[in-house]
């Protein structure tokens, strides 16, 4: 509200890689326009060489995240009217990731850290074994379910100060995934997850300042999962697990 709807928007878009500058485009302002709509309009009508990423346009794939007026956001589900700052719109690539071109980042470190945190399922049975029923009511399954809808958008990773300070820190998304696996009774090596997140740069580096929770577009709470990991790893360390 408050912002007067003008005919066109002046949109500043980052051009270049680490070295570069903002370029301003005049974009027609429409009702119900998303930030991704704006970027797409620029690419189709003003600057065909503009590099950016998206796929689903409906908040499923997690590929469209950018920094919008200073905050990391999923651009396909962010309405321009929600984020206009005195009529101003400034779009940059996500923070805390290597830049490739314009609005595109290299997400390799983000996904490598999922592996470092053992954020992948280790089966405990094969397809030839009978299905083991999993109660949807158990506290563990509920904890896993609460974190399972991550779309890998890296918004939380870009919002986390500790990632910025410590390049070894695996970050909220990887730890959120690790937390879901620790609570997944079908996982064959849950202790291995606890070991992995107890390394330097693991869950104990988190400052619990909840920036990830504040920014996660699908409303997940990595902070809570990380606190859970701290609790479980502390218990394991107390019990002499090595």
């Amino acid at each position: 509200m408050g912002d007067t709807i003008t005919e066109t928007l002046a949109v500043e878009v980052w051009r270049g890689r680490d070295e570069g500058q903002f370029e301003t485009f005049e974009v027609p302002h429409r009702e119900s326009q998303t930030v991704l709509d704006v970027v797409t309009w620029i690419q189709r009508n003003a600057e065909p060489a503009l590099a950016y990423r998206f796929a689903c346009r409906v908040g499923m794939c997690g590929s469209c995240a950018m920094t919008v007026n200073g905050r990391p956001r999923w651009t396909c589900r962010t309405h321009v009217s929600e984020v206009l700052d005195g009529g101003r719109l400034r779009i940059e690539p996500l923070a805390n990731l290597p830049r490739i071109k314009d609005l595109v980042c290299d997400l390799t470190p983000f996904f490598e850290k999922w592996q470092t945190a053992r954020g992948r399922f280790e089966p405990s049975a094969t397809r030839h074994d009978p299905m083991v029923p999993v109660s949807t009511e158990s506290p563990e399954r509920r904890a896993a379910d609460a974190g399972i809808e991550c779309i890998n958008c890296a918004v939380c990773y870009a919002a986390c100060d500790v990632v910025r300070w410590n390049p070894d820190y695996v970050g909220p998304a990887a730890l959120n995934r690790a937390w879901t696996l620790v609570n997944d009774e079908r996982d064959g090596d849950r202790n291995g997850v606890l070991q992995a997140v107890s390394q330097a740069g693991g869950c104990h580096s988190c400052h619990t300042h909840a920036s990830c929770l504040e920014h996660c577009p699908v409303g997940l709470n990595p902070t809570a999962g990380i606190a859970g990991l701290k609790r479980l790893t502390a218990l394991a360390a107390f019990g002499g697990g090595d």
Partner: peptide
């Protein structure tokens, strides 16, 4: 588990 132990020791 060094990080976990240090974490616990700092809290304790």
């Amino acid at each position: 588990m060094l990080e976990a132990r240090l974490y616990l020791l700092q809290r304790a």
